[in-house]
Write a protein that binds this DNA or RNA. Sequence first.
DNA 1: TGCTTGCGCTAAGTATACCAAGCACATGCT
DNA 2: AGCATGTGCTTGGTATACTTAGCGCAAGCA
Lengths: 123, 123
Amino acid sequence: MSDDEKGGAGAAWRSLGDFIRSQRELANLSMRQLAEIAKISNPYLSQVERGLYKPSADVLKNIANALHMSAETMYAQAGLLDDSPDRDESHHGVEHAVKLDPLLTVDQKETIIRIYRSFLGRE
Amino acid sequence: MSDDEKGGAGAAWRSLGDFIRSQRELANLSMRQLAEIAKISNPYLSQVERGLYKPSADVLKNIANALHMSAETMYAQAGLLDDSPDRDESHHGVEHAVKLDPLLTVDQKETIIRIYRSFLGRE
DNA sequence: TGCTTGCGCTAAGTATACCAAGCACATGCT
DNA sequence: AGCATGTGCTTGGTATACTTAGCGCAAGCA
């Protein structure tokens, strides 16, 4: 279904472009598809994902909408929102969210967390 | 794009420029003072307040900080925040946290999300 | 074997966000 | 009268966001 992530382990995105690219691949969209929805040209999206250009907030909003995510999340990733100092930084969002999920059983939670930790390479 | 934002029901400000100008005057700051604090040139601030240019999110954030207001408020006034998010229940917890995790690869995220959905019974 | 269609990327140009220098008019001081 | 210093604004240029045309490659199909 989806192509392999080249380069292997370590998906920590160094920039906004990496973030957008990972979100786009997660949504199984090609560059031209996402560019069409976000109303930008596909070469420009290419440059943005490669970190060559930093898109304006308007474009950022369109991309966020196209990826079904809130504009705030996008702006936060772009570093445009960091004036509010009080951010409730729960360290591991995944484990926290899993533990709080009301639809999972205890065993299912343990399974997911175990898989998650194995992916991170720590026991 | 839309240069005339009409139809804003009850909007006290015709445009973003008017909003900034009123906030600046409310803070008893001259253009040069605000421009200095916001790290932009005063002619540019003049153009912005007169609605000739639409500032980037970066500048918007600086102006908001200089006026001691949150960047979100500024973005909302600039019309950069009014996305229409579908109220998808998958956005709430686990899937959202997984997608935003910076340490997982795209494939790992897809794996975890697939397991999570299978646990919920909705493939 | 070719033709088509999809992909991401490059190159070159246009539009616009943004800055430095300076204008025109006020006010205050001597 | 002069000369400072303040205000907002205009002009001309530079940096950068963004687009249109097209390249090279891989996969499907005649």
